[in-house]
Design a protein around this nucleic acid. Structure first.
Lengths: 189, 189, 189, 189
DNA sequence: CTCTAATCGAGACGGTACGTCGCGTCTTACG
DNA sequence: CGTAAGACGCGACGTACCGTCTCGATTAGAG
């Protein structure tokens, strides 16, 4: 797949970058449902119709924005996911969220949680299977759906209450609630 | 706040009933976002403006519809939630969902999942505290948020894959993934 | 056809009247092609979407506006159209145009001439046949099309050169060029 | 206006020719308003921006196309326009239209009639004065405007009803309605 | 069993945002 | 290194719903 085949105009890259940044800026300011495409293009400084030359809808742009961020996060968490040492993975995940606090707060409290769950699950499913080993009692896709929903919810709670819990403590909770019951072969006594 | 103060005309009850039923009928046919208030009133056979005399928005009606159903479900699950016998509770919950399969499928796959989570958590928080005992390691509201999100996700997965899993089996998974790690006092070995 | 069957809300009449007046005001200010529907509703002080509840397009409104005016004009000219005294008819026509000079200038120089010709021909065809008698050499609809096109052109020229020609003189030209060759039974020598 | 001053690249001629042909092809297929510049350049097989290096707008191209055709037609009709033998001129005109039937149908029924009238009048005014002699009762430009409008309308009617009328018959009508009343010095009895 | 006021259906209205289209300009990557 | 391809800003289009508002026409339920 040579890059010569996919013609990417420099202008297109600039425009798409501007749209993604504009979306993020607005997400930190207001809820997803209150952001119109017209708001986004105004923020990004591009023409209204131009938006549709790059993304078919507001959600498609949102997805692009979210995919970027989640890919980082998943790449960070999955590699260290090993039976017997799942805590390492949780710690990596929450440290990453901690460093991108503003962004994740905006995403999770602004109405984008649904899209996050979907993207998260999609990416986890794409990258996970080769590494994770699950017992027969828990189908892979159920495990992924559960793990993603639970993780997203815990992140969301933590961002609302980040003063109370250190990274280590919330990671411990996440590990105990989500990772150990799914990944660890051993059933809790 | 006695109910005697709020005068409830027989016509009003009929109208609200018609709206709730209409909403449910449409939810089984199309996604929430594709249902307009005009669709609902047409389905219910009432006038457009009349809608707003009873509910301020589509979501308010949705909430009313959902609250009814979840109250039943929570009333069914929580009472039997006892340390040492959490499985009973899971079984009750999934049996109930199984009997209202069509409704729950519509709700969870039609875009109403967010509202369900919120209502579920609100009701769980209202009714749970007096019965559930949690260790200090897991704050109540985090436990509720986690439990609700995980439970909703497992229900949603099960409804998409109902042929594969019996009620007993999915209840067992739910018990092992969600209830035991949260409710059981004992920390997994 | 009782009026009870056709329910015409007073609001609708007000709205349509406002739109017609707004269109006329704008036509005296700019060319038809430069007038957007948004301009019209702004001028009329009504909502944008409301426009389409009354007229399907800008041209449909234009037609309504024009039909009104032409009906007056045709009602005025045709009745006095008698073989042997066609001049009377021409005089009536140009006197009417003279009294509505601004409107007709706007219509004919603003790009609405095509619509005027069509409406004029339609109305003439509706009302004329019972009165006009044509020889076999000239089919009715050709006579109407010709008469309308010629008349409209002469009016347009006169409005552009109104200082040079009195009503009587232009009526005489119209009579000699258009009416006598078509209406008069006698073939010119 | 010597052509030596305007440098005309062979490529430019080819491009302009392609555009003119493309416009004509499209005009026989759809109405003027439904033809976009993008349609034209696609049909002509040239680049979009290139269009504007030759014509400032769709109408300018249309005018160029029409001017060509009308110049032929006027050159054909005017020379034989002599007092006392106007019929000759009408016959020449309608024979020409008959031979270019498809083109003229497209032009007159496709929304280009207005431009045709303008071009026709412009050319008639440029070439006519030296040959036509008018009595004082009819100003030259009024005569031209009238003659053009009437002629165009009769051509349009004939193209819509060409089965009913032979060239000779429609030429006779045109002569009797348009030419004789204007050109002939003698006033009809 | 009436009378009267609440509730109803119907739907016009001012708005707002949508996604599409065509314009004419300006940029870019390629030959 | 000029030019054809096409991305861009712009702005009007017609559509869909929103929530507000006036209408009469039922229709409960209090007197």
């Amino acid at each position: 797949m040579t890059e010569g085949l996919v013609k990417i105009d420099a202008r297109m890259q600039r425009t798409q970058e501007a749209l993604r940044v504009g979306m993020l800026v607005l997400l930190e300011r207001s809820a997803l449902a209150d952001i119109s495409i017209r708001d986004i293009v105004a923020e990004a400084g591009i023409g209204y119709a131009t938006f549709f030359r790059h993304y078919a809808s507001k959600n498609e742009l949102l997805q692009a924005v979210i995919t970027d961020e989640i890919e980082q996060l998943v790449d960070l968490s999955l590699p260290v996911l090993r039976p017997g040492d799942s805590l390492e993975s949780s710690l990596a995940l929450f440290h990453h969220v901690d460093e991108h606090r503003a962004l994740w707060s905006a995403l999770l409290t602004g109405g984008a949680a649904g899209t996050i769950r979907e993207e998260f699950a999609r990416i986890a499913r794409d990258r996970g299977p080769s590494r994770i080993h699950l017992d027969g009692w828990l189908p892979l896709d159920l495990g992924v759906a559960y793990g993603v929903a639970a993780t997203v919810e815990i992140i969301a709670w933590w961002l609302r209450n980040r003063d109370d819990f250190s990274v280590e403590r919330i990671a411990a909770v996440h590990d105990r609630l989500v990772l150990r019951p799914t990944v660890t072969g051993a059933t809790p006594a």
